[in-house]
Amino acid sequence: MFALILDDAVLNNMLMAEAIRGLPDCEPRAFVEPRDALAFVQDHAADISIAISDYDMPGMNGIAFIRAARCVPGFEHVPIVMVTSMDQRPLRREALESGATDFLAKPFEAFEVRARVSNLVALNRARLEQSDRAAWLAREVSAATATIQAREREIVTLLMKAAEHRDTETGNHVARVAGYVALIAEGLGLSSADVSQLSLASTMHDVGKISVPDAILLKPGPLTFDERAEMELHAERGRRILEGSSSLMVQLAAEIAATHHERWDGKGYPLGLSGEDIPLCGRIVAVADVFDALISERPYKKAWTQAEALSHLQAQAGHHFDPRCVTVFCRAMNKTKADGDPAARSAA
């Protein structure tokens, strides 16, 4: 580490360099031209432990040098000592306001220079160590968060594999729904982190269907009243499967599982919630889920066209669906139509 010394008098530079020679992290680098010293700061900001500057110099005085040096990235907190006369109190005030850390009086004593420089360098070293530790902690937190997120994704994958054993279409359906959910969430102005979390959580919206008998789940024709009642239990069962987790993402998935069949007009299930009493996540997934179901071929129906499905959503806005979710989804679908299938944008 370097100790930058700036004085237009070569002799003063030599005396200052001799005074600090041998101090840790204080290899002297002396300059007589402020602009040369500033160029050194710009090239070696991270390698300078302290700067010592005279005030009265031609072209650029010490205060102007300090102001310019403080603007160099990485040099904002490096100690800067200004060498002044004891009777220059107004100058000292201006120097402090410009970014000076401490002062040395002219003529300076070598023992005082060593003591002050040593203390300031030690304080700066402690600051750097604290900064390094903070950066290390941030990296550790980031790594731990990534591990947690990877485990959550693993949970999702395992649950979806279990569901796919019941219905081979499930995996494709949840991936498409996740992409549509992301479109709606982005259109509503959710943060990128919330969009990602919601998109991933939505893949578990139908996990409760693993409890539905094959005779009902795969039935090629309309369901009877009793069969429909059994099918509708999947929302509550999905909530029960997912509830109690310490994971915020799984908690969100439980809420989605329980509410994605609620209707804006209160005629949905299992709780008959209406309007904004339905959690936003459930309202978003309701639109994405129904849209994908409509445009997909099922044992009991042919696939609708995208235009037909969008028209149905718009007709049911304010009845089945949250009008705002329908509006942003239709706008996003029309905007991305030329770019290919937007459902490819999944949580993964």
Rank of each mutant, 00 (worst) to 15 (best):
M160T: 15
I216L: 09
L123K: 12
L217I: 10
A193M: 10
L159E: 08
P28Q: 11
D102Q: 07
A286I: 00
R176A: 10
L217D: 07
A135S: 11
L273I: 12
Y55S: 08
A9D: 09
E297W: 06
R93N: 07
H44D: 05
C325L: 12
A46F: 00
T145Y: 12
A122Y: 11
A182T: 02
L23R: 10
K106R: 14
M57E: 06
L159D: 05
P28S: 08
L91T: 06
D47E: 13
L38I: 10
E97A: 14
N61F: 11
D36E: 15
S211P: 00
N124M: 09
T224M: 06
Q149H: 07
A215Y: 01
M333E: 02
A338F: 13
E232R: 12
I284A: 00
S296F: 03
Q130E: 14
Q149E: 09
P58C: 05
T170D: 01
R35E: 15
L223D: 04
K267H: 10
C281H: 00
A39H: 11
V117L: 09
L158G: 15
R21Q: 15
T305W: 10
A201R: 06
N61Q: 12
L242S: 08
G221K: 04
G275H: 04
H234K: 02
H312T: 08
A309Q: 05
E97V: 05
A144H: 00
V177P: 07
G318H: 11
S199D: 01
E297V: 10
M231F: 09
A317G: 05
S192Y: 00
V174I: 09
V81H: 06
H312I: 09
V121I: 07
S118G: 15
A30R: 00
I66S: 13
P90M: 03
A178T: 12
A286E: 02
I278V: 14
E94R: 07
A115I: 13
T259D: 08
T259F: 05
M249S: 13
A144F: 01
G221Y: 03
D341A: 10
G179H: 12
R89V: 15
I80F: 14
D214S: 09
Q314F: 00
T305Y: 10
I148K: 04
A215K: 03
T259Q: 08
S246W: 00
E140V: 09
C325S: 13
L242P: 05
T145L: 14
V212R: 02
P342F: 04
K209V: 01
E227D: 12
S245D: 08
K301E: 04
A68T: 02
T147E: 10
T259V: 09
E140Y: 06
A347S: 14
F31R: 03
T157D: 14
L198S: 01
L218E: 01
I80A: 13
A150N: 12
S296H: 06
V174R: 03
L96P: 07
V10W: 12
V326G: 07
I184A: 12
G272K: 14
D102V: 01
D206N: 13
G208H: 03
W304I: 02
T224Q: 05
